[in-house]
Design a binder for these strands. Structure first.
Length: 224
DNA sequence: CGTTAGCCCTGCTGGC
DNA sequence: TGCCAGCAGGGCTAAC
């Protein structure tokens, strides 16, 4: 293997022969190192097994089978990503950039944050937490968000994603790191999956609604 | 073109 | 206590 990179939510393994293995874990996908022979439990929900040397293998397990893995031929490793929006942690993702994305869009802000063609890599958890940090209601029309709020939202997205990465991600359900360890970002959720619990800022009750078909958690007092 | 609804899938949860 | 409907969600497609 030449290199392992990430673009949005896609893992990209560039192989020696120029092909690219692309893996998307979706919600329940897990990568781990296993050793042959596999135990019965390791065979359950196994989707892909890549054996390297000796008896060491990279295993891709996925209970819900939403995850994907595919191999791109050498000539097609570039255009695959052309539809994805900017990386939110890059310097070039700033208030000006986000403003341009939200401009002239009358729909609610939250589904736009989840649209990978507009911004790459923000999932449902991180959209909820970012909007809370920026004090923006998830149903706010995107083109009605002020310059100051747009700047706050950029800061919130960067801070939320950075913190989640630092804490190893969110192990709500099945997510584990390669070594099997759990992420700890879920311990710091402010609003996500906390319906009925008190808001950490104002003490009011956190509400849950559906936005764009996704469970959405927010504080109706803090987020306007 | 923008927006929305439905589908895929299985394990867990909540309500009775 | 046991059962089962409903929920969870990223990305794709279809429909409007």
């Amino acid at each position: 293997m030449e290199s392992l990179t990430r673009r949005g939510k896609y893992l990209r393994f560039l192989l020696d022969n120029g092909e690219m293995l692309v893996i998307h874990l979706r919600m329940t996908g897990v990568l781990s190192m296993v050793e042959l022979p596999l135990k019965a439990e390791q065979k359950k929900h196994l989707r892909l097994l890549i054996c390297l040397k000796d008896r060491a293998c990279l295993a891709f397990h996925d209970t819900r089978r939403f995850g994907t893995a595919s191999v791109l031929p050498p000539g097609e490793t570039g255009k695959y990503w052309s539809k994805l929006g900017p990386e939110p942690l890059e310097k070039s993702f700033n208030a000006t950039r986000l403003k341009a994305i939200l401009n002239n869009r009358s729909g609610p802000i939250k589904p736009l944050l989840l649209d990978q063609r507009l911004i790459a890599g923000i999932g449902n958890i991180y959209a909820d937490e970012s909007l809370f940090a920026a004090r923006i209601h998830p149903l706010r029309p995107a083109d009605g968000i002020s310059d100051a709020e747009t700047a706050a939202l950029v800061r919130a997205i960067k801070a939320t994603l950075s913190k989640a990465i630092r804490l190893g991600g969110s192990s709500i359900d099945t997510y584990r790191a390669l070594d099997g360890s759990q992420g700890r970002f879920q311990e710091t959720f402010q609003v996500h999956r906390r319906a009925g619990e008190p808001c950490p800022v104002c003490g009011g009750s956190i509400e849950k609604i559906k936005v764009g078909g996704r469970g959405t958690y927010f504080c109706p007092a803090c987020q306007k």
